[in-house]
């Protein structure tokens, strides 16, 4: 069963408006409808993961929230105020996917510049820079030029530059692209810390593992609207129930007959059709029977393993439902 495409009430602040409230939003590019009657709410302190394949409309949605694209219909409010107002847009902090900073400047010089450019006075900027350096754990590197920092540190500065004016809504577009696992985990900590002050966070990402780890709620953007949406584990449970995934890693590509047989049996390919997965009930002992069946088919498996389904599995499942080329 697919959950409703809204954030559950439990995630909203009890007595306040959601920080971001998008209602029935429709955006067209010429005759093409990119967003279609989209609803989305994010409350203070929540981290919302916006998921979806390339071209699904994530960038369009972010630009619309930032007031750069006029919707055909619907509304976007931030803390109850329409995003048509300049003052409302100032409640947003945007972390672009690229490192949107000045590479010849030091960490602190960058933060000072963006502090002033976000409308803070010199004194306010001084305090804001100190706070942002502390919360993103940049203090020890504040004197270093950006072009000598590693990708993970640059990403931290990228975030720090967006929070200097203490926005109510922080939008992060692919915040951990190109960073190693340790740096990614540290960035997750930084993002979590930011929500402790009540900041609402919207993360647009392809990294489903990241979304599952850090987001209090996620939404899949497909066909111009969000659905399914909800806390990651709820979505996984709703889609897969008590089932688990059996994953087969192949030694060599399948011939057409083998491929057709696996597809008919409900297997889903990935990794250039060198990995195939299928759902089975938890507790079923399929490995030995499966191995025997694969032997009969002449399929040479390098590895067969079981795994609990995650958001990546859900994403594949949703994608498969909309991929005509994956029919047997």
């Amino acid at each position: 069963m697919t959950p409703e495409p809204t954030v559950p009430d439990a995630l909203r602040a009890e007595d306040g408006l959601p920080v971001l409230d998008i209602s029935q939003l429709t955006v067209n590019y010429g005759r093409r409808q990119v967003l279609n009657r989209l609803d989305l709410k994010i409350d203070a302190g929540a981290i919302y993961g916006l998921l979806g394949p390339n071209g699904a409309g994530k960038t369009t949605l972010i630009r619309t929230i930032c007031g750069r694209i006029m919707p055909a219909s619907g509304s976007v409010t931030i803390e109850g105020q329409s995003n048509h107002k300049k003052s409302t847009l100032r409640r947003i902090g945007l972390v672009p996917q690229e490192i949107g900073l000045y590479s010849h400047l030091t960490v602190r010089e960058n933060l000072q510049a963006f502090g002033r450019l976000s409308g803070l006075s010199a004194a306010q900027t001084r305090d804001a820079v100190k706070w942002a350096e502390d919360v993103t754990r940049l203090s020890e590197r504040h004197g270093e030029r950006l072009d000598v920092l590693s990708g993970g540190w640059k990403r931290r500065v990228n975030i720090a530059a967006a929070i200097l004016h203490r926005p109510a809504l922080l939008i992060l577009d692919e915040p951990t692209v190109g960073v190693d696992v340790d740096a990614r985990n540290e960035l997750h900590e930084v993002i979590r810390d930011l929500t402790h002050s009540g900041m609402a966070v919207l993360i647009a990402t392809h990294d489903l593992d990241q979304a599952e780890t850090i987001c209090s709620s996620v939404g899949f953007l497909r066909n111009g609207t969000i659905g399914p949406a909800g806390p990651p584990q709820s979505l996984i449970d709703a889609e897969f129930g008590g089932r688990t995934v059996v994953i087969i890693e192949l030694r060599q590509p399948l011939n057409p007959s083998q491929r057709s047989t696996l597809l008919k049996a409900g297997f889903v390919p990935s990794n250039g059709e060198m990995t195939w997965s299928v759902f089975v009930e938890v507790g079923s002992t399929v490995s030995s029977a499966l191995t025997a069946q694969l032997d009969r088919l002449g399929v040479s498996a390098r590895e067969i393993r079981h795994r609990k389904p995650g958001l990546d599995t859900l994403f594949l499942q949703l994608t498969r439902k909309h991929s005509p080329e994956l029919t047997p």
């Binding site: 930032c66 100032r90 945007l94 672009p96 949107g100 900073l101």
Partner: peptide, 20 residues
Amino acid sequence: EERNSGIVDRLAVGPAGTDV
């Protein structure tokens, strides 16, 4: 460069905008 690196995107939501 600033447009492509996202600096302008970042500033566009603030009071500076692209005019500054």
